[in-house]
Structure formats: structure tokens, C-alpha cells
Design a protein around this nucleic acid. Structure first.
Lengths: 220, 220
DNA sequence: GTATAATTAGAACGAACGTTCGACCATATG
DNA sequence: CATATGGTCGAACGTTCGTTCTAATTATAC
């Protein structure tokens, strides 16, 4: 009878009948998709559960069958988005060893995912610090992991090319460049992810690359 | 008896007794300062008038003596912030003719103001599209004007150095770099505006500067 | 086909929202 | 001192908020 999502989740995990993707999961994903649009448009605090209810076509009470709270709904969106982008990045990074090439892969992966999932990425970027306690720290950890990957790529580059600059500020600048996109990007005007990634990659890497530690020392 | 801020404003404007800065203006500014902190911390939609009342030490009803609505309060913060930064920029730009120098001034001005008024600038950046109709279009116009200044600086640079790149994307990338600061900046760790401006200026200008239209053509 | 569980919806909860009203202080001018 | 005006407040308005209860409906298994 009463089966909120927490109870539900463990029940499904222990049973695992025929398909891993249960009806529950499918419906939940659909709802999350619609919810993402609304949260993107109105912001987390500005969007009401009634707004989400309306957008998904599900009753207000029905939503609480799938999500135990509004906060958990945002958490699920953010977690899924972060997990997916990191996972996709790791696959792509595995096939490249050159430091500059790896940073270009990072940029391309970020921008491609960003443009392909603009609404979710805006919700991720814009509602960065609204989750509290447990939810908040978990998402913050995912974010830190993602940032750390980028920092280590930057360190690789510095070592490989004998450069000297603050990895932290470089990474933050790069993320700023890329994440700010959600405030201005227009598909018709600004081209696709590949072009954008090349342009931002050129600008960033050439700029960063000029900070030689000492004159000419290509290999260690 | 009944004297909401709209009526008040015109009354003060027509009288202009001894000091231009009336008690009303002073108190209103104080409230706006406190309100900025709250809006920065909780977001526009997430902050209630009761939160602002608590932070300013003024009663809920008292707030409405100074601001006819919550929306207008945000509008006043954004308008003041934008106006001030643009005005300060114009003064500084007047004393420099070199294209690269002017862009460096733009960056420095933006970052200095940003770091000196972090909360207001976060409210400006983060609550970019929450104002509607009249309020919204006026702030949007101020923003467009500010952006256009930067675009024209970029065009100057392109012409002066014979470069070829998209001014729009360059400007947006630069703003992303700078505005993203509010998500990561820690005074103790990341230094002051001058250092940051030099670092970002170097990165950006060197990166952008590599996009020669053709080899060597310094002047028109 | 009936029992059992998964899914949905209507109606309501108390709390908090933005805003308003009318009555109070404070201050300064006559 | 009287009186007008600028400033402030407590209390309440009607609405909407996130959430929950209970009952009805639908899918699944025997």
C-alpha cells in the first residue's frame, strides 16, 4: 500500500526480477526529465511542486510516490547529471596520453554534454549550493572529483611543457568560460560543441601555454 | 500619512531642500546593503521579505515604506550595481588608447569591483533573469550596454593587431572567466583583484592574440 | 478471477508567503 | 503647545507552499 521511494528502492534492489529497468525507474526518469525543464526555467526555489506536477501531468500526491521530497528530486537530477558526464569523460580520456590532447578532450566532453543537456547542466550550475547536509555534501564530493580530474590534467600539462601557473585559477577560469555558456548560448548563432571547444581550447591553451618557466625546455 | 516610495521619490525630487542625500535615501541604502547579503546567501526566490526584515532590523511593514515590492528591491540593487560599475569603467577607459591596454582596464575594473562588491555582483549575476517586464528590460538594457563596450574593445583589438575571431564568443568567454569567480573565490587563497586581472588578462589576451588573420600586419 | 501489490489522485494539513491597513511614535515647523 | 508629516510597527489579509492521509484505481501473480 504505502510505498515511498526509499522503501521501493531497496525492495527493487533485492528482487531484481527480469529487467533491471523497472517500470518505476522508467516513470521516475520521465518525471525527472520534465522536472528538469521546470527547474531550469524557474529555479529550484521558484518552482513549486505544483509546477512540477503540472509539467509532468502527474498529481501532486503522485509525485511523492516517486520522490520523498523536493530536495531529493533536485538531488537525483544533479547526481545523475554529474555521474554521467564524469563517466563519459573517463572513457574518452583513456584513449589519449598527450597532456594538451587530454585537456582538449576534457573541454570537448564538457561542452558536448553541456549543449546536449543544457537544462540539466544549468540546474547543476545554477542550483549549486541549495542542497543541504547529506544531499549537499554528496553532490559537492562529485563536483570536487570532477574538478580534481581537470586540475591533474593541468598539472600534467605544466610538467610536460615546463609551464608555471596556478592550476587552481586556470581550472576555475576554464570552468567559468565553459559553464557561463548557459547564460548566452544560442545554437543558431554560436555553432556546435566541436567548434566552441576548438575555439575555447585554442584560446585557453595558447594563453596558458605562454607561461614558460624558463626559455625552451620541451621535455623533462 | 501614506507615503510609499514612488510618491516619496517625486516629492523629494521636487523639493530638494538642503542636502541631496536625504534621510530616506540613507536609510534605503542601508536596507539595500543588508538585503544584498540575504539575497546573495539565499537567492531571490529563496529569500522572504521576513528574512530581509530580520536582517535589516526593520519590521516587515516598514520595508514596504521604502520598497513598493520585493521585485523593486532587487531591481534597485541590480540597477545601482550596474550603473556604478559602468560609470567607473568609463572614467578609467578615458585615459587609455592602446587596445590591449583598454581590455586590461576592462578586466581589472570588472574584477576589482567584483571582489569589492562580491555579494551585489553575485546577486547581479545569479539573479539575471528573474525580473520581469519593465524592471527586466531596463536591467537587460544596462547589461547589453556593458557587454557592448567590451565587444567594441575587442573589435578595436582585432583591427589594431589584425586578428580574426568571434568577438561575441571571446567576450562571452571572458565574462564567464570573470563572473564565475563568485563560485570559487577565496581571498586568502586566490590573491587580490590586481593579480587575478593580470593572470586572466595574460591568459585571455595571449590566447586571443594568437589568432592572426595573416602573418605580420601590425597597423592598418 | 480473485488476491496482492504497485501506482495514482482528491482533499486537506499547518506553515510561510507577499502585501496591506490603520494605528502609533518621532520630529520639526508654526 | 499644537499640528502636520515622515517614519515605524503589530496584526491581519488571502494565497500558495511542501507534505501527508486515505481511498480509489490499475497492473501483476496465482
Amino acid at each position: 500500500m504505502l510505498a515511498p521511494s526509499a522503501v521501493k528502492a531497496s525492495a527493487r534492489a533485492s528482487r531484481l526480477k527480469k529487467s533491471v529497468e523497472t517500470r518505476f525507474d522508467r516513470r521516475q526518469s520521465e518525471i525527472l526529465d520534465h522536472a528538469t525543464s521546470v527547474l531550469c526555467a524557474k529555479g529550484y526555489a521558484g518552482a513549486s511542486m505544483r509546477d512540477l506536477s503540472r509539467a509532468t501531468g502527474m498529481s501532486l500526491a503522485g509525485l511523492y510516490y516517486y520522490f520523498e521530497s523536493k530536495e531529493r528530486l533536485l538531488y537525483l537530477i544533479q547526481k545523475h547529471t554529474f555521474t554521467t558526464i564524469v563517466q563519459q569523460l573517463k572513457v574518452r580520456l583513456a584513449s589519449e596520453t598527450d597532456a594538451e590532447g587530454r585537456i582538449r578532450i576534457f573541454i570537448l566532453n564538457h561542452l558536448e554534454y553541456f549543449l546536449a543537456n543544457q537544462k540539466a547542466m544549468k540546474v547543476l550550475s545554477h542550483e549549486d549550493d541549495v542542497l543541504e547536509n547529506g544531499f549537499g555534501t554528496e553532490i559537492a564530493a562529485l563536483k570536487r572529483g570532477y574538478y580534481r580530474i581537470c586540475v591533474s590534467l593541468m598539472d600534467e600539462l605544466k610538467q610536460e611543457k615546463g609551464l608555471e601557473f596556478s592550476s587552481r585559477i586556470a581550472v576555475m577560469s576554464l570552468f567559468g568560460m565553459m559553464n557561463w555558456i548557459y547564460t548566452w548560448y544560442k545554437p543558431r548563432v554560436d555553432g556546435g560543441a566541436v567548434d566552441l571547444a576548438r575555439q575555447m581550447g585554442d584560446t585557453f591553451l595558447t594563453g596558458i601555454g605562454s607561461k614558460q618557466l624558463r626559455k625552451r625546455s620541451s621535455t623533462k
